[in-house]
Design a protein around this nucleic acid. Structure first.
Length: 667
DNA sequence: AATCGTCTGCTTTTT
DNA sequence: GCAGACGATT
């Protein structure tokens, strides 16, 4: 059975694939065929008779989960592949919680709050809690709360500090709203498993083989979850690379990988060091750099791709020159070497650095795709539609109710909302219950109560219809939106007619996605909203929409990707390593960030730094990053952009170009 | 209620 | 230098 051959694997890979009992740690260096090993291991498990429903593979991103699923689909039979559990930590937790969360005092129809929802809730709480002279940035509060949850801290519920009070209020309110934030998905799943033995047993019996990808990025909560899910013996296989741990600031703990033995004694440890991506020049530079980090599992990458050209470190006058030089060079190389635009990538530390490159690439007529940026799901109109659905499914969700209560305007003004909200705080019950209570409606003017009644009726009708077996949610939602003139209001509030049409078509797209989802997956609207909240619908489509061209991407986002020709820009003190890292003592992580960047390159790598850089509006002197001195001199060729620019076509260049031309013609 | 103007404060962001 | 947030102004 199976369409995979173990002979395609190198010896350590094979060892990793065949180690199937007890704890296993696979230290997979950059480009060493990690995904291949994971998928082959799953195929192997199936091959030796493991029932597919017993296999759980956890990833960090939906993209990684999708890729894994796809690769496996090509290796094993379809029905087997369909029975595997492959997904993100968060998706797994939603599955666990949708059936078991009632044990923790939530209702099963909880709403998942995304960042925007969290922020609006926090803003509300902060303004209510803070006194006049106190200030707390909602973003900062959100980050601190998130960190606290991810480190599995006990809530610092001392109402002494504003933050402590806000933290306590926030959690309390979420519970009242029957809502959970992203972090709660993990927090609550862990709690459920830890405190309810029957739930834990059931899951341990079900998942006998657990695999975790990118283990260096797991935080304390995720580590705990893995430990709770693992049965006895713990058949846990983790895959990761401590040298690529770059999310410490988000609570990731490399210690989970470095001290794996502490949680799972006597593991089989396999190191993957043969790299299938880069030249040895690139790998040796990366090896040498990372040697400067303490506390790591020693690894040395090598490949049989030869040495390739030296790494160029290019000095630029300023950031403007950096951008125009690179744009010019890419255009030239694209022509001279007949390379597709997609062969090039520009990697930077901060998103703000992308602007000049965008300008210059555009000026040179080079197509590019900028990775990152605002998501489809953060669009106002999409959030509105989701809020309508959330309200119908979970009327306790005040944040969603507030979002749509007067969108479109239906005569429920701020005063009305304010008084209802006040009432709901007094009576400690959801806003919705106030809006539909006769006692409240009798106390307000006729016009107000009529408006509120009409709104309540609309939503209640939607709820009843949605609950009807076989209901077409997309049709019902779309119908409601038309009925309340949502689309007209949307268009009216747009600056241009095009924008209005665009926004409307986003909604049509969402509804058609929903219809398709209901046609082929179970779980109905709730499952669709879960998928949306976890960002795992329409993922690929979005990426493709961005089209092709030179890739502009941050170092963080570039992890896991590869490009034939890489420009690593802004290698200056203060940028990489970033200024803040010195204060926070995370210089090692900055070095790993550079390590990740270097190991993205397959064939050639150029590193640039500027003598001056516009920062905060004015041109400031800049200095080359101290990391550059850590690259072995014999692998690096140091150049000065001004020299190249002032001597455009030297004799040597012409000869080299002629040579290439002759080679291309087969002579 | 909406828009304009001024102030502030600056990474990275898988879900 | 610019985006985002908030407050004053119509």
């Amino acid at each position: 059975m199976g369409n995979f051959r173990l002979t395609d694997l190198n010896p350590p890979q094979l060892e990793a694939v065949k180690a199937v009992s007890g704890p296993v740690m696979i230290l997979a260096g950059a480009g060493t065929g990690k995904t291949r090993v994971i998928t082959a291991r799953i195929a192997w498990l199936l091959h030796i008779g493991t029932p597919p429903e017993q296999i759980l593979a956890v990833t960090f991103t939906n993209k990684a989960a999708g890729e894994m699923r796809e690769r496996i689909a090509g290796m094993v039979e379809r029905e087997q592949a369909a029975k595997l559990t492959i997904g993100t930590f968060h998706a797994l937790c939603v599955r666990i919680l949708r059936t078991g969360i009632d044990r923790l005092g939530y209702k099963h129809n909880f709403t998942i709050y995304d960042e925007g929802d969290q922020l609006s809730l926090l803003r509300k709480i902060i303004t209510r809690t803070a006194s006049k002279d106190e200030k707390l940035d909602p973003h900062a509060a959100k980050n601190l709360i998130s960190q606290a949850k991810n480190k599995a801290w006990n809530p610092p519920e001392d109402d002494q500090t504003l933050l402590g009070a806000v933290y306590a209020r926030y959690n309390q309110e979420l519970r009242q709203l029957n809502a959970v934030d992203f972090d709660d998905l993990l927090v609550l799943a862990r709690k459920l498993l830890a405190e309810h033995e029957e739930v834990r047993r059931k899951l341990q019996d079900r998942y006998r083989q657990i695999m975790v990808d990118e283990f260096q990025d797991t935080n304390r909560l995720q580590m705990d979850l893995v430990a709770l899910l693992a049965g006895d013996p713990p058949n846990v296989c983790v895959v990761g690379d401590d040298d690529q741990s770059i999310y410490g600031w988000r609570g990731a703990e490399v210690a989970n990988l470095l001290e794996f033995e502490r949680h799972f004694p006597n593991p089989t440890i396999v190191k993957l060091e043969q790299n299938y991506r880069s030249t040895n020049t690139i790998l040796n530079a990366a090896n040498a750099l990372i040697l400067n980090n303490p506390r790591r599992r020693a690894k040395k990458l090598w490949s049989d791709h030869g040495d390739g050209p030296k790494i160029r470190t290019i000095r630029m006058a300023d950031d403007r020159e950096e951008a125009s030089f690179i744009a010019g060079e890419i255009r030239q190389r694209q022509v001279d070497d007949a390379l597709p635009w997609e062969a090039f990538a520009i990697l930077f530390r901060m998103n703000a650095q992308s602007r000049l490159f965008e300008e210059q690439l555009r000026a040179h007529g080079i197509p590019y795709r900028l990775i990152g940026g605002k998501s489809f799901f953060d669009r106002r109109e999409i959030k509105d539609v989701i809020a309508y659905a959330n309200t119908a499914l979970n009327p306790s969700d005040d944040v969603s109710v507030l979002r749509i209560v007067n969108t479109p305007p239906r005569g429920i003004g701020e005063g009305t909302v304010e008084s209802a909200l006040h009432e709901s705080v007094e009576r400690k019950c959801p806003l919705w219950d106030i809006l539909r209570s006769e006692a409240y409606l009798e106390g307000v003017s006729r016009a107000r109560s009529n408006a509120v009644r009409a709104f309540v009726d609309q939503i209640e009708t939607l709820r009843i219809r949605l609950a009807t077996p076989g209901a077409d949610s997309a049709e019902l939602l779309g119908g409601l939106l038309s009925e309340c003139n949502y689309f007209d209001d949307l268009k009216r509030s747009c600056k241009t007619p095009e924008e209005g049409l665009d926004r409307e078509s986003n909604i049509r797209q969402l509804l058609s996605d929903l219809r398709e989802f209901e046609g082929k997956k179970k779980g109905g609207l709730t499952a669709f909203l879960d998928a949306l909240a976890l960002r795992n619908e329409r993922e690929e489509e979005k990426k493709d929409d961005q089209g092709n061209g030179v890739t502009l991407i941050t170092l963080h986002a570039a992890k896991g990707l590869e490009f034939p020709h890489v420009y690593l820009v802004g290698l200056e003190e203060g940028i990489l390593p970033h200024d803040r890292s010195k204060m926070e003592g995370s210089l090692d992580e900055e070095r790993r960030l550079l390590y990740v960047g270097i190991t993205r390159a397959m064939k050639s790598l150029a590193i640039t730094w500027c003598n001056g850089r516009t920062r905060y509006g004015s041109l400031m002197p800049a200095h080359r990053s101290s990391f550059l001195a850590e690259l072995p001199a014999d692998l690096v060729e140091t150049v000065d952009a001004s020299v190249i620019l002032s001597a455009p076509a030297s004799q040597e260049d012409a000869a080299a170009r002629f040579g290439r031309l002759r080679a291309a013609l087969g002579g």
